[in-house]
Design a protein around this nucleic acid. Structure first.
Lengths: 363, 363
DNA sequence: TCCGGATCTGACAACGTTGTCTAGGCTCTA
DNA sequence: TAGAGCCTAGACAACGTTGTCAGATCCGGA
């Protein structure tokens, strides 16, 4: 568990900046911060009056206010939000647990959540689960211990009942990208099923009959949904699915490379591939670039520069920023008091045709 | 300013999960969380004993401990870290101010900082300055008000003296990617000057004499350094610089597109371009893709899929993750008590030749 | 039987802020 | 001029935790 236990004593980076030291007469202990009490003493007013000035509350004469402001500046006072939070019970911060802060798909989602939080005056605490359920849980509960007002979670695990007490205690929670496991809660998702179905149908419409699917591990909801979309599209087109064309598993370059090569080998290779997310697509594109044969490709998730490859990569794009924004807005709606039953929002995907998906099977 | 003022009353997402309600006899107010006091009452022990159990402190008999644990589970108690933080004075959290959480360059840096923080048991609060000095300041000071133990800042502004009182008060601070303005502080940078110089020299070595430079706004330290590297390389190669080949400004696609096209027009167009960061490079690549003439290109920052374009893009790569890791490690070294004078670490860049930089000027 | 010394436990204050409540001074009106 | 009513200001408790310290209990040995 993450813990607040003091890791080490407070230390200031050494050469104390010149301007920071002087004119600190009433500051009691060196290195300690002045408090409202110190400000009050220096200004010759009561504690509460300082609080009023700091928070812009009414009922302070201009003269008094100025005396307090002067003391604040002289002492370099800055309100301690820890104390404020304890007293008020609200932290004006929300927590975001996602899979990987650095992933090009989640980073814009992160940013979108940040923007909404900012618009509501809240700070953002976030962390990467690295697709590890235990780590997701640790992070989410650490955020709860900090008493974030709300929580946005991109699930790594498939059982989120551990959050029920927290939600009951007042921490609003919204799930994004994947639904909560074994409980009912707000969720904002992309239409993985529909998107994959449309992408695969697109390949089928261009004459492909042997279409491969390479996706993430099946316990991940989006991966399962996309596979379902693949199967639906194949069925729609009246195409049989050979199970050797389907591969789910970790999205490491090694595995994806191997699977791609496997599907392209043999007497009856696939003529088209549908890749289940941005990481898989990137690796597959690399493999295909070295293959003499032209293999059609549609990928789930857009990629930067995808339009500049040759052939340019056709993708089923989801709007990561919109996912994040929608989830955050839903969260703040809850925080504002919305009490309707949990709802699931499904955002549409968009097929962007660029060339790789329009290749016809080679004769 | 960001503010903690309660935005709205606490509300739980509506249908209270079934399992969360029952067996809550001594819980005083509904919806309120149990505190150590409640646990103590239920277990029939003193407050401090609960604290000891929760924190794994010694001096509690196994029997007492079990009674407390039972009460904790029954009540669904979770320690309130806000109170703990107030009491202990340390938050076990660090703040990171960067330019844009979603930028493919900063996202890995963000993640690297997170990993180091995690290894030290600290949480990460972060925010995007959007290259706005005022917003950078707001964020940094909001983090300070939360009493983060340390701060990592990617400067947007060029005067960071506003942080001096905070640093003096004990908030360790490390700057990354760009140095602090008007003050002396730890900084971890990439070798922008050397990297740009090497990249431009590479172009010159392939016979280019008219080399353009498109970069970010000149007040941004890295942009200025890279321009300096460009001029140094040109001078090294004995090449004159026509000022129409140099363009600094916002890295919006519109401006970059216009500038690229301008430099390629006229009777004596540039035969090669050096682009100052990932955003500029991406736009320039798009423009060049539509130009019949082959123009050499070296970009600062690596791009995903850069190796798959034709020609593949030669870049001066910086290691964003290493920047973040180094900065975070330096921060925790300070938190551990290191008191040596502020130091500046400069990490090397790496020229990755892929093709676009090796094109020779067209006859 | 009594004492010294562990060992376990709890009362209490403190962290820095904000909400409540009351006191005092002022203005206005009858 | 006295009383009502408003405005400003401050004393005090409370938020939930942890550090300090002293009390209670138990043990073994004299």
């Amino acid at each position: 568990m993450l813990d607040v236990t003091p890791l080490r004593p407070p230390v200031r980076t050494s050469p104390v900046p010149s301007s920071a030291q002087p004119t600190r007469s009433p500051s009691p202990r060196y290195g300690a911060r002045p408090t409202m009490k110190d400000v009050a003493a220096r200004a010759g007013v009561g504690l509460k009056t300082v609080s009023r000035v700091v928070n812009g509350e009414p009922g302070v004469t201009p003269d008094t206010e100025r005396r307090v402001q002067d003391a604040i500046t002289a002492l370099g006072f800055r309100r301690n939000d820890s104390a404020r939070i304890l007293r008020k019970g609200r932290t004006a911060s929300i927590g975001l647990v996602l899979e990987d802060l650095a992933d090009p798909f989640y980073a814009p989602l992160n940013r979108a959540v940040e923007e909404v939080a900012r618009a509501h005056g809240a700070l953002l605490i976030n962390g990467s689960s690295a697709e590890d359920p235990e780590r997701e849980r640790e992070l989410a509960l650490a955020f709860c211990a900090r008493r974030v007002d709300g929580l946005i979670v991109i699930p790594a695990g498939d059982d989120h009942r551990y959050l029920e007490p927290e939600i009951a205690a007042g921490i609003a929670t919204v799930f994004v990208d994947r639904p909560a496991g074994r409980m009912d809660a707000d969720a904002v998702l992309s239409d993985s099923f529909g998107g994959a179905r449309e992408g695969v149908a697109h390949l089928a419409a261009h004459g492909h009959r042997r279409i491969g699917f390479i996706g993430d591990r099946p316990r991940i909801h989006t991966a399962a949904e996309r596979l379902r979309g693949y199967r639906a599209a194949m069925a729609d087109a009246g195409l049989p699915v050979d199970e050797s064309w389907v591969s789910l598993g970790p999205t490491t370059p090694e595995r994806v490379r191997a699977e791609t090569e496997r599907m392209l080998a043999g007497p009856e290779p696939v003529t088209a591939l549908f890749t289940g997310n941005n990481r898989v697509t990137a690796t597959t594109v690399r493999v295909l670039a070295r293959v003499p044969r032209r293999v059609a490709l549609v990928g789930f998730d857009d990629l930067e520069l995808a339009d500049l490859l040759s052939p340019a990569v056709t993708v089923v794009a989801q709007d990561a920023a919109r996912l994040g924004r929608t989830a955050a807005e839903q969260l703040f709606r809850r925080l504002d008091g919305a009490t309707e039953p949990p709802r699931r929002v499904v955002l549409p995907t968009r097929l962007i045709t660029r060339g790789s998906g329009e290749l016809r099977p080679e004769a």
